[in-house]
Design a protein around this nucleic acid. Structure first.
Lengths: 319, 319
DNA sequence: TCAAAAGTGTTATCCTTACACCCATGT
DNA sequence: ACATGGGTGTAAGGATAACACTTTTGA
């Protein structure tokens, strides 16, 4: 690219007026106890992150080494989420680009790393967990406050548009919950100043309304990761990155349910998994689950070669 | 983020050892004459691009201004594709991050801009156009050469794996063509040194085998854009960004076919579009198309608010 | 015996795919 | 008349969703 670039660009050469820093940020997900968890550091609710450095062979390897250094957690599956430029900083005129990633892993036994923490992601997004029915916070708190926010708009068109967006994102009108709209929902709450991050300061009221806050825009990045994962499990077999080598079908189902935040129809779920030949029996069974012993399965890694393979469709139960 | 970052990062402050440059690169697509086209500059088959600068308000606005400056083409719809770090450059130890975007637009009448060119994207990817049946280059050239490449591998396992990957990506075994695997196919051809970019120099033989080359990794970025677009039209109504304000259903179908590189079943396509209420009649008709005059439609922008809306499913015709 | 989970069979419904056919206009 | 594109009806097949029910263990 370089040879050509000189011809078409303005400020090439070794000038550094436009030089910037690049930050790598990781949303590391594991599922434990039927709860999806995200890896955080410090006591400040921050995602692992660090600058991309000369010593890094690639963006991904830079990310891996930051996460390992900060948390001791080695990463398996990684995919890029989004790149964005931070608003200008005060003081230095320099800009920062943030490149965010989603990583899937299994929770390692905690070592004596002081700063590693696995936080339940529904602590940050309480309204996203519909496994025990529609959370009451939705109708009791979020809906009235979003309506109030909508009606506080200056002109009629904005009011209509705000109500419309809220209704679609949260399923207020028709009760249709779309679990993939996690990011849109967070952004609405942000616009409506119902999350701690939006109010800048420490409005404890806002914080208690809409989940735990994180520093800077880390919660938005987490929302992006959740949305990506919820959509991806349906068309790519990525859940298995979160599973132990051997598992029962119900364990698999509970993991998918934890991620999607909704309950699935057991008989149909099993059939879908089996007919897609995503798994194979080990021959063993386990009695650890209570009830009749469950057959154990392992992921058939071969499917990844065999065809462009789909993920785990979600046979939902009725509300 | 800054406040916290200082606590957890190594080389913060104003040091610049790890400072980098960020390049913005655009895949700008339009469809004209039933041919998808990509905006290029210069005679070198290059995508519009330029460095992210202090003056840019955001990554997207930086991209817009580079494209407009280099081509005079204003952009509408934009979405991020991928961010990657170039391999180190010779001479300066500095690194460059490239942030690529997909933009959809309508082709503007050419002004006296000397360097703007709209190139047919199938000139770069001749094997991707299946609208007139399976291209003969697939069975006549690509398949034998890919097999030869596979068999040239040292160990048995690699041979098996190369054959497997080729068969899935190009549908050799079962004749199943998956139009979304554009990137995988390009990467296979790259690995097999069947594209000009891989051979470094100007192997004209390679170039004629597998389409026009582009500078650096621009063709890989284009492949990424094609793959993204082919998948996205199915679940988001983005085709309409490429259409004039008013169009007939067959024109819409031809546009989708051009992007997908495959033919669609006309009656079913129309029904899908209409029953999803993606369009509404203008009341006008046109006789420009030959045959019976066609009703004209426009996109119903309102659907974007009404619900989480799907795109244009592809009711394929049999091969 | 009961609770809890594993597992099977079958039906109803919807969506996709395909086929067959008619309509309106220009040459 | 016929070629070209516009447009409608409907049936076959497959995938999904729902319901009903049996099996196997531990407490």
């Amino acid at each position: 690219m370089d040879d050509h670039a000189k011809g078409i660009r303005k400020g090439t050469g070794v000038s550094n007026a436009n030089d910037i820093k690049a930050d790598l940020i990781a949303v590391v997900v594991a599922v434990n106890d039927h709860e999806p968890r995200v890896l955080t550091i410090g006591r400040a609710n921050a995602l692992p992150s660090g600058p991309f450095e000369l010593g890094h062979r690639s963006l991904q390897s830079g990310l891996r080494s930051w996460v390992e250094e900060q948390t001791g957690q080695p990463l398996g599956y990684i995919e890029q989420l989004y790149t964005f430029a931070d608003r200008d900083r005060v003081g230095t005129g320099q800009r920062v680009i943030s490149i965010s990633y989603l990583a899937l892993t299994r929770e390692e036994e905690a070592t004596q790393s002081d700063r590693r923490r696995w936080e339940r992601w529904y602590d940050y997004f309480p309204w996203e967990d519909h496994r025990s029915g529609t959370p009451s916070i939705l109708s009791k708190v979020l809906r009235p406050r979003l309506l109030k926010w909508a009606d506080s708009a200056g002109d009629n068109e904005t009011r209509r548009e705000r109500r419309q967006r809220s209704a679609v994102a949260f399923g207020f009108d028709d009760g249709t919950w779309n679990e993939e709209l996690t990011l849109q929902r967070y952004e609405l709450l942000y616009e409506a100043a119902m999350v701690g991050e939006a109010t800048g300061g420490q409005s404890s009221a806002a914080r208690s309304v809409a989940g735990e806050s994180m520093i800077a825009d880390h919660r938005r990045i987490l929302a992006t990761g959740i949305a990506r994962l919820r959509s991806k499990i349906k068309y790519r077999p990525v859940v298995f990155e979160l599973m132990p080598p051997v598992f029962s079908l119900l364990q698999l189902q509970r993991t998918v349910e934890a991620l999607a935040g909704r309950l699935l129809h057991k008989p149909n779920f099993r059939r879908l998994i089996e007919q897609q030949e995503l798994v194979e029996q080990t021959g063993e069974t386990t009695a650890d689950t209570g009830g009749r012993p469950a057959k154990l399965y392992r992921f058939r890694h071969a499917v990844l070669d065999e065809r462009a393979v789909a993920g785990t469709k979600l046979p939902l139960t009725r509300a």
